[in-house]
Design a protein around this nucleic acid. Structure first.
Lengths: 135, 135
DNA sequence: CAGCATCCGGATGGATACTG
DNA sequence: CAGTATCCATCCGGATGCTG
């Protein structure tokens, strides 16, 4: 009777690690802000209240499905506040909550780094590509 | 002569959107650090040189394919340096480049925010879920 | 040891149509 | 206006097997 196979051990390790990641705060937050649309919504709301249709227009290219889904998760996480005004026509406003605002410095730190170093990255890519293409 | 098909319009829209994204530095960088494995590799390398097999072990749960792929893009972007030692057996070391190190403060800012506010987020989720479940 | 090629299932997310 | 519901193509990423 053999011990566990390599595959079984690997799977166990992966499951364990996944469990670790699931409880890792940094991981959870990163999973959020890493979302394709989350940061775009965040910066859009950073300069003031926006209506659903405003967001749809400002973030050109987002589908309704993704915008709604993004707003729901942000609302659930307490980063964004949703205010519905029952009238005709319906009006829904979204703002950053204080918690959402407190995240902006971190987001802006990444943004600042990006704008400062994108040139280096692109230069590196060009070098890398020309070198690999030569082979 | 028919007008453009739905597929053609879809492709045109996507191409336009891709072009927009391509010009956004923040987006490009966020796409990188948002990758499931990128930040894990970054923090693993932040405390020193690591061999391929070290990374494989430290970041339990990553597949070889993903680890290699992650390292390649990081190398291409100039965030990570790859050093191969031709010997038997082959030995390959990875380090952060100065550029990669300069990114760490921004990553740590997000990490710090995460650890500080994860409680608020989880509380918000609990409230949100109990409220929606009640309906 | 480090890495590549291939296959493939499932999640992701876009298009579209419909509703209060 | 602000969504919801559904369908479906694409792509991500894991498993596996093979090299220098």
């Amino acid at each position: 009777m053999p011990t566990r196979t390599a595959a079984q051990r690997r799977e166990a390790a992966r499951a364990e690690y996944d469990a670790f990641l699931a409880t890792c705060p940094s991981r959870q937050v990163l999973d959020r802000i890493s979302d394709k649309w989350v940061t775009l919504v965040l910066v859009a709301l950073a300069d003031g209240t926006k209506r659903y249709s405003d967001l749809c227009r400002v973030i050109a290219g987002v589908s309704q499905k993704m915008l709604t889904q993004t707003l729901r998760t942000l609302e659930r996480d307490g980063l964004v506040a949703r205010t519905a005004t029952l009238a005709v026509p319906v009006r829904v406003d979204y703002d950053l909550t204080p918690l959402g605002e407190s995240l902006m410095p971190a987001v802006n730190a990444v943004k600042a780094w990006a704008e400062q170093h994108i040139g280096d990255i692109e230069a590196s890519r060009a070098t890398y590509d020309s070198r690999t293409a030569a082979r």
